[in-house]
């Protein structure tokens, strides 16, 4: 039986634990600096606490890394050195050099590296990709992707807003749609971006727009931000081809709305995750797929190379916003 351990017991660790619990894999336990969060996950999914990363690695076949971005590099390297397969949250790493090194290390160690670009597992995004692949809208001309929420607001260790740790909004959030744009419209030749981080360094919010030119001539408009009033989170998807158009505007698929008489002004969640009622959560779909890849050799929907390419796209967008020039890939 495939033995899995999760590193990092925050909100993403919890999503992944829920996913592994729906697979035949054995969730042997967790390593995290936050024992309270581990205890909650153990109560729900079983397993035990590992005091060190090495102790966890010695007890598993697969390690699932759900830690802040700046920790991915060291952890993936150590896992690869011990010959363990790896699921790693996006972004793969904090820098392109780190990302390259991780892909090389995993290849050399003969271990599988899966990068958790979960948007590829959201049903509307997966279905849009299928519709495009079937040729239903012809050749792709312009792709439009939006993903804007509010500033992450964790009371303790708000690493998302620490550029050194997370890389900022473009590396943490916009990377989802940069990956998706590349998935549906192919390799990217150049990225031009504008960001409020660069234009107004003191601004309280973060917001960016990017224009991608794909090798096949298609263009993508990617919008990302931590700028909306909480708890607002909007995503949208539009793919225009020479044979048709696929539109999925923000808010157009609200399948359930609950409007209750106000009790007290509810606090916004600390971090936003887009939600629509589904019998199977996209994170569960993702982890089940990763299980099939690791246990049965299924073809991964997102490879280590895809994770590296997405990382490079996000870094290119950041560089373009900083320099004011397009970045050629």
């Amino acid at each position: 039986m495939l033995r899995v351990g999760i590193v990092g017991a925050g909100f993403m660790g919890a999503y992944h634990a829920a996913g592994w619990a729906r697979t035949p894999a054995e969730l042997v336990g967790f390593h995290s600096l936050n024992q309270r969060q581990i205890d909650q996950l153990i109560a729900q999914y079983g397993g035990r606490t590992f005091a060190t990363l090495d102790a966890l690695l010695d007890a598993v076949d697969v390690v699932d890394i759900c830690t802040p971005t700046h920790l991915h590099y060291e952890m993936v390297l150590r896992a690869a050195a011990k010959g363990k397969h790896i699921v790693c949250e996006k972004p793969l790493a904090r820098t392109a050099e780190q990302g390259e090194a991780l892909v090389a290390a995993c290849r050399q160690a003969g271990v599988t590296l899966l990068v958790a670009h979960v948007v590829r597992f959201f049903p509307e995004y997966a279905q849009a990709k299928t519709i495009v692949e079937r040729g239903e809208i012809g050749r792709v001309g312009v792709v439009r992707l939006k993903r804007v929420s509010f500033q992450p607001n964790r009371p303790e260790d708000n690493w998302f807003v620490d550029i050194a740790k997370s890389g900022g909004m473009m590396l943490d959030l916009m990377i989802h749609d940069l990956d998706y744009a590349r998935w549906v419209a192919g390799e990217v030749e150049s990225v031009f971006a504008r960001s409020v981080r660069s234009a107004r360094p003191g601004a309280p919010g973060d917001y960016a727009l990017a224009i991608l030119r794909h090798a096949n001539g298609a263009l993508s408009n990617v919008e990302g931000g931590w700028a909306y009033p909480p708890p607002m989170f909007r995503t949208s998807l539009e793919i225009a081809g020479d044979g048709g158009l696929l539109e999925h505007p923000a808010g157009s698929s609200t399948a359930l709305s609950v409007h209750l008489m106000a009790r007290e002004e509810g606090d916004a969640p600390e971090i936003a995750v887009p939600r629509s009622p589904l019998l199977e959560d996209p994170y569960v779909v993702e982890i089940k797929h990763f299980y099939d890849v690791l246990a049965h050799g299924a073809t991964p929907r997102v490879t280590a190379e895809d994770g590296l390419a997405a990382l490079k796209l996000a870094l290119a967008a950041i560089e373009s916003a900083q320099t004011g020039r397009p970045v050629t890939l």
Binding site: V142, A199, I211, L219, S220, N221, A240
Partner: peptide, 21 residues
């Protein structure tokens, strides 16, 4: 098809999708 990015003197930026899509 086209995507255009404008930068304004006030520091704001704007993208325009002008496509006949």
């Amino acid at each position: 098809g086209g995507l255009v990015m404008l930068t304004f003197a006030n520091g704001a930026f704007a993208s325009i999708d002008c496509s006949w899509s």
